[in-house]
């Protein structure tokens, strides 16, 4: 089974890190193959950041994503640039705190940034909340693999916060109603 996942948001939200964590979870802990790529612009902060991950049981040959089946969109500009054209059969997780548009495909509204800020007191972990919701709703990697990959990737001293964020995201993902295409 081949999954193609696209993350987009603004620079500074940890969009690239989210993709790296997902790919790492697949390769290191689910014994799968993954390729992670990203769009590099000159901006280090702001702008629209985008990163993609392919996860496959077999070795990945062509490394680029043509049109992903799964989207995680965390900013309005990211939606407009990298989410608006999502195909009808795709599924999109939108951070409903920051994205006001909705796609023409199936989507889940995850208030990642609001929950990170209100429940955990740190909006910096919104991307991890979104990752938790992604895994709970799509099962692209196992929850155990995601947890390990998060622990590998986050700064020392923030492990507990990040695992809380992931679990919060998993709950949000499981509880969220999937909006069907109208």
């Amino acid at each position: 089974m081949r999954y193609e996942v696209r993350f987009s948001g603004f620079g500074g939200q940890g969009i690239i890190l989210s993709a790296v964590i997902l790919g790492r979870a697949a390769v290191m802990y689910d014994n799968k193959y993954a390729v992670q790529t990203q769009v590099y612009g000159p901006e280090a902060r702001g702008g629209a950041s985008m990163s993609q991950v392919i996860i496959d049981d077999e070795q990945i040959l062509f490394p680029k994503v043509a049109m992903p089946g799964i989207f995680v969109i965390m900013s309005q500009e990211g939606f407009e640039k990298y989410g608006a054209n999502a195909p009808k059969d795709a599924v999109m997780l939108v951070d409903s705190t920051l994205v006001h548009s909705r796609p023409a495909c199936k989507y889940l509204e995850i208030p990642g940034t609001r929950e990170a800020k209100q429940t955990l007191g740190k909006d910096i972990v919104a991307n991890i909340v979104m990752l938790g919701a992604l895994v709970a709703s799509t099962h692209v990697v196992s929850e155990a693999a995601l947890e390990k990959a998060i622990l590998d990737s986050v700064p020392k001293g923030t492990e507990t916060l990040n695992i809380k964020a992931m679990k919060l995201g998993i709950d949000l993902g499981k509880g969220s109603k999937q909006h069907e295409v109208t």
Partner: peptide, 9 residues
């Protein structure tokens, strides 16, 4: 740049 920047197994 593709091979230099992509991550894989």
């Amino acid at each position: 740049e593709i091979v230099g920047h992509m991550r894989e197994k």
